[in-house]
Simulated assay, not measured.
Amino acid sequence: SDRGITDLILWRDVAKSTLWFGVGSLCFLSSCFAQGISFSIFSAICQLGLLLLGLSFFSNSICQRNNIEKRRDIQLKEDDILRVARLILPAANLAISKRRELFSGEPSMTLKVAPFLLLGAEYGHLITLRRLCAIGFFVSFTAPKLYLRYSARISQK
């Protein structure tokens, strides 16, 4: 079974690979032109992030104007999460520290983060699960073959 998939992806059996690639391409291309609900969670998250970034920036600006140093450290304790799952704690603390860093309201960080959130909010509707699957499908048929073909040149450089 693994040998058949490898042969299919690496185009060793050209007839089978062409058939599966053609059927997959037809399905994905036809689904891209189909009308449906165009809600993107990525776009919604980016719009929420822009709102949070703006509020943090204004809050930080007001605190600096009044010379108030206000820092709230929010951390999850191990006892709070231990009952739920031990695997979630490191990921949650990393997400909180990164969120605090990204949405600190400092002008330099705001200028770095805002363009990505603006692009995500504006064009996030283009990133859908269907399109991500289509990209994955096409990459899975092309990347391994291209790598095998050019691996000698890659290793030389």
Rank of each mutant, 00 (worst) to 15 (best):
I68Q: 15
I74R: 13
R130Y: 01
D73S: 13
G105E: 09
A152R: 14
V84K: 11
F137L: 04
T128K: 01
R71W: 05
G120N: 00
F57L: 15
M109L: 07
R100P: 03
I96F: 10
I135V: 15
C63I: 08
K98F: 13
L89V: 04
K70N: 14
F57V: 08
R149L: 11
S56F: 05
F57D: 07
R65Q: 13
V139R: 05
C133G: 06
S151N: 05
L126W: 10
Y147N: 13
Q64E: 14
I96N: 04
K77A: 12
A121D: 02
S61P: 00
K145A: 12
L119F: 15
F57A: 08
I74L: 14
S151L: 04
S59L: 07
R71P: 07
C133K: 03
T128F: 00
F57Y: 15
G105V: 04
K70T: 07
K77R: 12
T110P: 05
Q64T: 12
L119Q: 08
F138M: 07
L117K: 00
L82E: 13
L94T: 09
N67Y: 09
L119M: 14
S97F: 00
I135Y: 09
S140K: 01
L82P: 03
Q75E: 10
A114D: 00
P90K: 01
L87S: 14
V139Y: 07
I88Q: 07
C133E: 05
P107F: 06
A92R: 02
Y150H: 14
G124I: 01
A152M: 09
P144G: 02
R99D: 02
R83G: 15
P115A: 04
V113I: 13
S151V: 06
L146I: 12
R86N: 08
